[in-house]
Amino acid sequence: MNDHIIRSLKNGFIVSCQALEGEPLYGSSFMAALAVAAEQGGATAIRANSPQDIAAIKSVCSLPVIGLYKKTYPGYDVYITPTIREVSEVAAAGADLVAIDCTRMSRPDGETLEQLITSVRKRFPSIPIVADISTFEEGVQSMDLGADLISTTMSGYTPYSRQHPDPDIELVRRLSELKRQPVLAEGRIWTIEQCMKCYEAGAYAVVVGTAITRPQHIVKRYVEHIRKEVYKSAPEQPT
């Protein structure tokens, strides 16, 4: 186990460099450039999706990479590194850690989460597992199954988890108070103030993605706020 990698993340800032197909910055060259920018800014690690992006980032960036592979299997809900096949591709691309969906949503091939984690441990014993969870119960289960880090990535993205526009700081706090595996705060973190509240709640490290690496969403937030606050106060024009 690469314990030194986990230790290097403590109190760090992790940047998630991801873009979906059809988005303006979709493509490995763009993600690699964003990772270099994040490294220059002082990030301690990168979170990246797909073997192609992981390999491109590792070729130009010296930071540890939390790798994942979003892949949809018809009839199943889990899509973040859902099977050992995706784990293998992420590992082969050079990821230093692997993130897998550890929610209770349906999994491909009838495999259980316990079976997947056991397979990962057997085939890739030196790669730490990051458990992407959405609830406290999922976090505890992932700890019990031996995941190395717990990330609140999926809170608000499963139908049964807390639905809120702000980060799930309470989930970070509850899991951190167990004083078991390190907890990464991730999901809907838009401001420095929110980021610091996550650290105050006990987060081992904080992960931010969209607010840094998806400019169309950043612009959208500005525009929506302008329309809400400025337009309503503007004097009415004569008809």
Score class of each variant (00 low, 15 high):
Met1Pro: 02
His4Glu: 15
His4Phe: 15
His4Leu: 15
Ile6Phe: 13
Leu9Thr: 04
Leu9Asn: 01
Gly12Ser: 13
Gly12Glu: 10
Phe13Ser: 03
Ile14Ser: 03
Val15Ser: 12
Ala19Leu: 05
Ala19Asn: 11
Gly22His: 13
Glu23Phe: 09
Pro24Ala: 13
Pro24Gln: 14
Tyr26Asn: 07
Ser28Arg: 11
Ser28Ile: 02
Ser29Asn: 12
Phe30Tyr: 14
Ala33Ser: 15
Ala35Gln: 08
Gln40Leu: 13
Gln40Val: 01
Gly41Pro: 07
Ala48Gln: 11
Ala48Arg: 03
Asp53Ser: 08
Asp53Val: 11
Ile54Trp: 08
Ala56Arg: 09
Lys58Phe: 05
Val60Cys: 14
Cys61Asp: 12
Cys61Ala: 11
Ser62His: 08
Leu63Trp: 04
Leu63Cys: 05
Leu63His: 02
Val65Tyr: 14
Ile66Trp: 07
Ile66Glu: 06
Ile66Gln: 03
Gly67Ser: 09
Gly67Asn: 07
Gly67Glu: 07
Leu68Met: 12
Leu68Ser: 02
Lys70Ile: 08
Pro74Trp: 14
Gly75Ile: 10
Val78Asn: 04
Pro82Lys: 07
Pro82Asn: 13
Thr83Ile: 13
Ser88Gln: 14
Ser88Pro: 06
Glu89Leu: 11
Val90Gly: 06
Ala93Met: 10
Asp96Gln: 03
Leu97Asp: 07
Val98Pro: 04
Ile100Tyr: 05
Cys102Asp: 08
Thr103Ile: 05
Thr103Glu: 10
Met105Val: 07
Ser106Asn: 07
Asp109Ile: 03
Asp109Lys: 15
Glu111Asn: 11
Thr112Ile: 14
Leu113His: 04
Leu116Ala: 11
Thr118Ala: 15
Thr118Glu: 14
Pro125Tyr: 12
Ser126Asp: 15
Ile127Lys: 06
Ile127Phe: 05
Ile129Lys: 10
Val130Met: 15
Phe136Ser: 00
Glu137Ile: 01
Glu137Met: 07
Glu137Val: 03
Glu138Arg: 13
Ser142Cys: 10
Asp144Leu: 15
Gly146Ile: 10
Asp148Phe: 04
Ile150Asp: 03
Ile150Ser: 06
Thr153Phe: 11
Tyr157Gly: 00
Thr158Gln: 13
Pro159Tyr: 04
His164Glu: 09
Asp166Gln: 13
Pro167Arg: 07
Pro167His: 02
Ile169Asp: 00
Val172Asp: 01
Arg174Cys: 05
Arg174Asn: 06
Arg174Gln: 09
Arg174Gly: 00
Leu175Lys: 02
Ser176Val: 01
Leu178Trp: 04
Leu178Tyr: 03
Pro182Tyr: 07
Ala185Arg: 02
Arg188Phe: 09
Trp190Leu: 07
Ile192Phe: 01
Met196Phe: 02
Cys198Val: 00
Gly202Thr: 02
Tyr204Thr: 01
Ala205Lys: 02
Val207Asn: 04
Ile212Asp: 00
Thr213Lys: 09
Pro215Ser: 10
Tyr222Cys: 06
Glu224Met: 13
Glu224Ala: 14
Ile226Met: 12
Arg227Lys: 13
Arg227Asn: 14
Lys228His: 12
Glu229Met: 02
Ala234Thr: 08
Pro235Ala: 05
Pro235Ser: 09
Pro235Leu: 03
Glu236Arg: 13
Gln237Lys: 12
Pro238Gln: 04
Thr239Phe: 08
Thr239Glu: 12
